[in-house]
């Protein structure tokens, strides 16, 4: 399935060029988001009704929207929010997912059973649908969008980490740490969890894009960032 795209393992075999182009695009987007206010003199919420729907010009690079707001300024301001949503959702949901997934996989028994059943139920929902439902009842705003996306986001990490931990806990270095008298918490934090991080980082990279798109979809439905804040 991965053959069509550029897998990370392809980087050593002559695909550095593509990786560089990709990195440049990402860096440009991040820089635009971070430096937004320095790149444009316009306030993203300021309206110039006389100029509404005007096309791109030297003064307004992307033109103006139906309320006469500078679209370039709004794109930059929206990029900051999208980036923030991506970072917070991935950061918090991966932390929760790693914690619960590693405990489920390492401790096993009833704890694993309980966590796994919750994961099963949450995975039985189409993710975005659950986010729509949560935002619908909690109220449409950015905080609730981040909360909803985190509540559905941790599940994928937990399942991934649980699988990794089930494999890792039987490895010799973990057995050795246990034999040396390391506590469960120490074994998990120092030995088991670090071994799951490469897989988690791949999932987090995909999750960042997913979170940004999900926020955009919710905002499109009127359930995300509320006007006049751009997204």
């Amino acid at each position: 399935m991965w053959e069509l795209g550029v897998g990370i393992w392809d980087l050593g075999s002559g695909n550095w060029e593509l990786a560089r182009v990709g990195a440049l695009i990402v860096l440009a987007a991040v820089a635009a988001a971070l430096l937004g206010p320095l790149l444009t003199p316009y306030d993203p919420a300021a309206q110039q009704l006389a100029l509404r729907l005007e096309g791109p010009s030297a003064a307004h690079w992307f033109g103006l929207d139906e309320l006469g707001r500078d679209i370039f300024a709004r794109v930059l301001a929206g990029a900051r929010i999208s980036l923030m949503v991506g970072i917070v959702v991935v950061g918090v949901s991966s932390t929760i997912g790693i914690a619960l997934g590693s405990v489920a996989g390492y401790v096993g028994g009833r704890v694993d059973e309980a966590i796994s059943r919750v994961i099963d139920v949450l995975l039985a929902f189409p993710g975005l649908l659950l986010a729509i439902a949560l935002v619908a009842v909690l109220g449409p705003n950015l905080t609730n969008v981040v909360l909803a996306l985190t509540l559905i986001g941790w599940v994928g990490y937990a399942r991934l980490v649980r699988g990794q931990v089930l494999r890792t806990r039987e490895l010799e270095f973990v057995q050795a740490a246990r034999a040396l008298g390391a506590t469960t918490v120490r074994v998990l934090v120092r030995h088991v969890i670090p071994s799951t991080l490469p897989a988690v980082s791949v999932q987090a990279t995909l999750g960042m894009g997913g979170a940004i798109l999900a926020e955009a979809a919710l905002s499109f439905l009127g359930l995300g960032v509320q006007p006049p804040t751009p997204s």
Binding site: V118, D120, V121, A124, A133, L134
Partner: peptide, 19 residues
């Protein structure tokens, strides 16, 4: 069956999540 029960429980919980 337990998954469906979990789904129904979650949907029930939704309305009680309203602040």
């Amino acid at each position: 069956i337990p998954v469906l029960l979990g789904v129904a429980t979650l949907v029930f919980a939704l309305i009680h999540l309203i602040p």
